[in-house]
Each structure stands twice: as structure tokens, then as C-alpha cells.
Design a protein around this nucleic acid. Structure first.
Lengths: 350, 350
DNA sequence: TTGTACGCGTTATCAA
DNA sequence: TTGATAACGCGTACAA
């Protein structure tokens, strides 16, 4: 046995072992046309004995890598939402049974980290790229789209590549109408202003949806948006900042009121302030956004709007496979959110 | 401008543009020895104009890929813990400023998914592989370690590769002693039996640590382990199962008691049962494990043992770089956990 | 049905 | 200091 264990076996090792040519091995591996049963048996035996696996890099140099790349943030917030985990779930379930693998490039809050993650995937020749991009990376995604199909998650602006967004205006409407249907008329909105790029962001669109729906319900004169500025705050302080804003709001407004929060973290800050002030759900009703795992936990029981990350993952894969299959033009898909009602929203006490 | 926008620029495109050889461009890119200032300027200009980036696959065929691979589960539990997010944080922070990129291969609960993730990274020639492996993959990691440095996360069994574990026995001791120091003597343990491989798993080691510490404290006759069998349960039912076990425990035991839960999800089930029965922390004190984000949320305020995922990530990178730098033998590193005391643990009411 | 030969983009070696 | 050329592992025309 002249096996060299310090080196990964190559297609040539397999060919020698099986006593055939490299081309023959290649054909068996890819189960291409023109392989006799005898040849197949010999080669497969050699492959198994050596534990041979083709190198994606070498393969990718001539054809595809059969890889889908996903670039997402991995920020550590006080309450981490599970949205991207669900997206990953969706992608994995769609990819199961195909030849494609998923690799994820996570980014942190460091400047340039998001760009690094995106380039890392492009440099590794993914056959399709799904990216959650902030404003700085949108242009680069456009360029990359010339070489590889791109799906932009949460990209609301126009783009030459496929985009996939949750319908935040609609979702905000769901929250407001849910509270309205319960009997609430004093419905406030709590939002988070994160950074200088506030337009076309999910939070901004939820504000718009809130205002539109209040107007449609004839409540525009009672609409009030309270904003938390996350710009110059560290992760741990965000919760505190939201908490103090929520607390002030609760102390000033006359119960019963309802609060639609721009995300679950903000909603939890409200719940905390409520607990401190001894307020119950029929005095202050709260609806969050994202439907994080925490929201479903029985002691929290927070009504929340679900963006359906799983479906986003499934849809992203479908879009990529369409583009890989030949579609040229960019498409925009919208995922309609739905509301999960829980104990935090109740009819107002009379 | 004869630029072909449908193709990624190659090193040859750059060489032609700059009027030099491919080798020269390569040297500038890798800033190797023997490049004149003039040559560097010409090449860098051409690189910038074309937006050239080297292909990792082609590079990897001759040398390294400068890639660290991380294989981790992405399971959707009712309360998702944030441990792996912190590991990613740690890896990213260690890799910042180096040439290395991180790519993650997530696995789901599908049979073979974990193996697929590990192979996907190996097939892509990562220079180092960090993997959270269940029992089925341990052998394969051993094989792969011959070709690429491997770090096994949470691998307690002996192995030829580097392993990195939290000291679960010690962590369990921290929890028990914390409750003991508060004055508790009736200290129970709630654990989760996940699957057939219960030995050498973190949960099993926490049980051992619990029993050892109870013995050291002279409380062995009062030690009692209550187990939840997750084996044939779906993700959503786990919480319910834990909840009913917790509820029975609370109804049968005479308060004040203390419960050390094998993880935060189990601890939250206890908190929920306590809320239903109207029990406070001075009647039932609870300590969890993992220090998830939820634990720190003020309305939950759960005392918990922290595995320090961030440090695990940092350490994993250090181990890999050591191996890449030449170390041959496998090493075992242990991360010492620490306890964060919160409102869920209190001195017992007298 | 099988084998030969070339090319993919890059780096390493050697010569100039 | 630079350039020509041979690898790296694999896929695929083309020839046999």
C-alpha cells in the first residue's frame, strides 16, 4: 500500500488504483454518458477505498462550484433576533436534495466587514449570492450581479439584481389594524433610527405604514411616532435608551393606550417599563415586529408581526436557481408578513 | 475600451493592461520580494481600473485559500441560544486584520446534514476547520485532520486533533455552590437527555459535576436528577415536556428549593411553571446554563452559567494558526465558565 | 466505450 | 528586477 496519508487523494490516485484513465473516473463521478457497468464498479470501489472527494476549486475552474453564498450580519444585540437563522433554515431546506451547498459569510459591526463578507463569497466563485446589504454595499452588489446571480435581502431601492423584501408597510398596517380592531384608538408608534440611512430601511417603512394606516382609520390627528436614536449608542445601551423612552411615554399618556413597536427588542423595553409601573395588557397593549423566539415564550407572550424568514430563504433559492437557469432580468419579490396575536394585546379597559 | 463586462477580470487582463507579465502582477498582488516602485504603480493602477480580485479557487490550487471554515448546527429551538453567534463573533474579531476569511457551513436536523457541512468546507480547501461535531462525525474529523488542521468544539472524547471544550463539570459546580452559598440545601438538577449519545456530552458532564459537587458539600443524599427525554420529541414539544416535568417537580417538593437546570431553555420552563404556581425566587431559586440573551432580559433576570463562546472563537483561531504555523500534535483546551448572578437566585425564605 | 490533450487562473521555479 | 513556463486538480472536446 503506497498510500500517502498526508495528501488528499486526487482523481489521478483513483485512476491508478482502478487501472483506468482520469477521464473515466471523472465521467463516473459526474455520472456522465458512456460508462460501462464494469467501469463504474471498478471506479466506485477505488473512490470508496481512497475516500476520494473532488476538490471544488479545481472543479470550479472549469465549470461550477455548486455553491450558494449567503452574506449576513452577526451582530450581538441585547436581544438577538432569529430572523437570519430562519432564512438559513429556509435555504437549507430548499437546497436539500440538490447538488448545491450553502456557505455563509457573517459580518460584524466593524467598518468594511460587510464588504469583506460579500467579496469573500464572490472570490470563492459562488454560483449564486444572497446578501443582506446596507446602503454602502448596494453598488458593489450591482457590479457583482454581472458575474453571478445576486439576491438582495431587504433591499428596497431599485436594483438590476433580484431583491427580496418583507412588506413592512403592510406589516405595520397589520399591527395597527389589529390594535384598532381590539378597540384601541390611542395607538402610538415606537421606532428606532439606526444611523444616517433612515430612508428606505425597514424601520422607516414601518413608520410610513403606521402613518398611512392611522390616516385610513381616521386617526391621523392622534398618530404619534416616538424615536430611539441608536446612532451613537453601544449595543447594551440601546435597550436602556428604549426603556427610558418607553417609560416616559407610559408616564405621560393616559391609559388605556396601545404601542406598536418597530421591533421586538423595542416592544420588550415597553413590557419592562409596564412591569415597573404595574400596567397590564388591558391598560397598555403592545405589538412588536419580527416574532422572535422570545416573543413566543409564555412569560413574555408578545403579539408580533412575523417577517417569515423561512419563506424568504426558500424564495431566495428559487430566484437564484431561476437566474442560474437562464433568466436575465432582475425581479422584485415581496414576502407578505402576518401577525401572531398573543397576550400582550388586549381590548382596552373601560 | 475592449472590456468584456460579462467576465470577471483575470490576472492576464491586468497584465495586458499594465503591459507586464502575469508573474509580475502576481508578485505585486502578494507583495512578494523584487518589485520596483514603478512596476508596483503600473500594476496597482491596472488592478484598480479593472476592479480585479484574485480567484480563491485558482490560488488555492497552488497555495492556500486563506480561509477558516466553521461547521455549526442551525437548529430552530423554541428558545434559540446565542452560543454559536458568540463563537462567530470571537472568530471574526480574531481574524480582523489578518488575510483570513471566515466561511460558515450551517447544518440542520436532517440526517447527514452535519457531515455535508463538514465535507463542504473540506472540499473547499479551508486552511483550518472548526467544527461542532456530534458523535457520528468524530471519526471523519480525525481523517480530515490529516489534511487540514481541525478544532473540535465541545468534543470531550480523545482525538488526534485539537479540541476545545467548556468545563461543564466545573460550570455545574459553580451553579451548585452559588445556590449553596445563598443558603439552599435542597438543590435539584434538571437535565435533558438528547438522543442515544448521552455520555461525554455537555449535558451528561453537567450531571456529573452536579453530583460531584453535591457530594463535596455533603449533600449527596439529597441529590436528585430529573431528566427530560428529548429523543422522540419535536422542537416545539421540548418546551412543553420540560414545563410539565418542572411543574410536577415544583408541586411535589416542599419549598424552599433550588433548581439547577442544564440549560437556559429548561430554566425558563421552570420560571414559567413558577409563575403559574405563584412562586417567587426566595421559594424556588433557579440557575440556568448558557447565559443566553433572554436570561439577561430584565423581566426574566435568570442567573446563568456562561460558556464564553466569544473566547472559544478566539481560542479556536489561535489553535488553528498555531497548527498552520507548524505544530503537529493535538492539544486540548478548556474554557472555564463563569456564573452571572441575577434575580432568579435568592436566599431561601425561612 | 475509453484515452489523450488542452484549458481554467494562479503561483513557484528557473533563466535572463 | 523581470519574464517564460511548468505545475496545481479537474472537466471536456476530440480522437481512437
Amino acid at each position: 500500500m503506497g498510500e500517502d496519508l498526508t495528501r488528499r487523494p486526487t482523481i489521478l490516485d483513483v485512476a491508478r488504483r482502478a487501472g483506468v484513465s482520469r477521464a473515466a473516473v471523472s465521467r463516473v463521478i459526474r455520472d456522465a454518458y458512456g460508462v460501462s457497468a464494469e467501469m463504474r464498479a471498478k471506479v466506485e470501489a477505488a473512490v470508496a477505498e481512497l475516500g476520494y472527494r473532488p476538490l471544488v476549486a479545481a472543479r470550479g475552474l472549469r465549470s461550477q462550484t455548486y455553491t450558494i453564498g449567503l452574506a449576513i450580519p452577526n451582530h450581538h444585540n441585547t436581544l438577538r433576533d432569529t430572523f437570519f437563522n430562519r432564512v438559513v433554515d429556509g435555504i437549507l431546506s430548499s437546497l436539500a436534495g440538490t447538488r448545491y451547498n450553502l456557505i455563509v459569510a457573517p459580518s460584524d459591526a466593524t467598518p468594511g466587514s460587510e464588504r469583506t463578507a460579500i467579496e469573500a463569497l464572490a472570490d470563492r466563485q459562488v454560483d449564486g449570492l444572497v446578501a443582506h446589504a446596507s446602503a454602502e454595499s448596494l453598488g458593489r452588489l450591482e457590479e457583482l450581479n454581472a458575474y453571478v446571480p445576486v439576491v438582495g435581502l431587504g433591499v428596497h431601492s431599485a436594483a438590476g439584481y433580484d431583491t427580496l423584501v418583507g412588506d413592512d408597510r403592510f406589516g405595520a398596517g397589520l399591527a395597527v389594524r389589529h390594535l384598532y380592531d381590539l378597540g384601541h384608538r390611542s395607538i402610538y408608534h415606537l421606532t428606532s433610527v439606526n444611523g444616517p440611512h433612515f430612508s428606505d430601511t425597514p424601520h422607516r417603512l414601518r413608520v410610513v405604514g403606521y402613518q398611512e394606516t392611522m390616516r385610513d382609520l381616521g386617526l391621523e390627528h392622534r398618530a404619534a411616532v416616538h424615536a430611539i436614536d441608536e446612532a451613537d449608542q453601544s449595543a447594551n445601551q440601546i435597550g436602556d435608551s428604549a426603556h427610558s423612552v418607553a417609560r416616559r411615554l407610559l408616564e405621560q399618556a393616559a391609559a388605556p393606550i396601545a404601542i406598536f413597536a418597530g421591533n421586538d427588542a423595542l416592544a420588550l423595553a415597553v413590557l419592562r417599563a409596564m412591569a415597573e409601573l404595574g400596567l397590564a395588557a388591558d391598560q397598555v397593549s403592545v405589538v412588536g415586529y419580527d416574532d422572535t423566539d422570545v416573543a413566543a415564550y409564555p412569560l413574555i407572550d408578545l403579539t408580533s408581526v412575523d417577517q417569515d424568514g423561512h419563506r424568504m430563504g426558500v424564495t431566495a433559492v428559487r430566484l437564484l436557481l431561476e437566474r442560474i437557469g437562464g433568466r436575465r432580468d432582475g425581479v422584485r419579490e415581496t414576502i407578505t408578513p402576518h401577525l401572531t396575536a398573543r397576550a400582550s394585546s388586549r381590548p382596552p379597559r373601560r
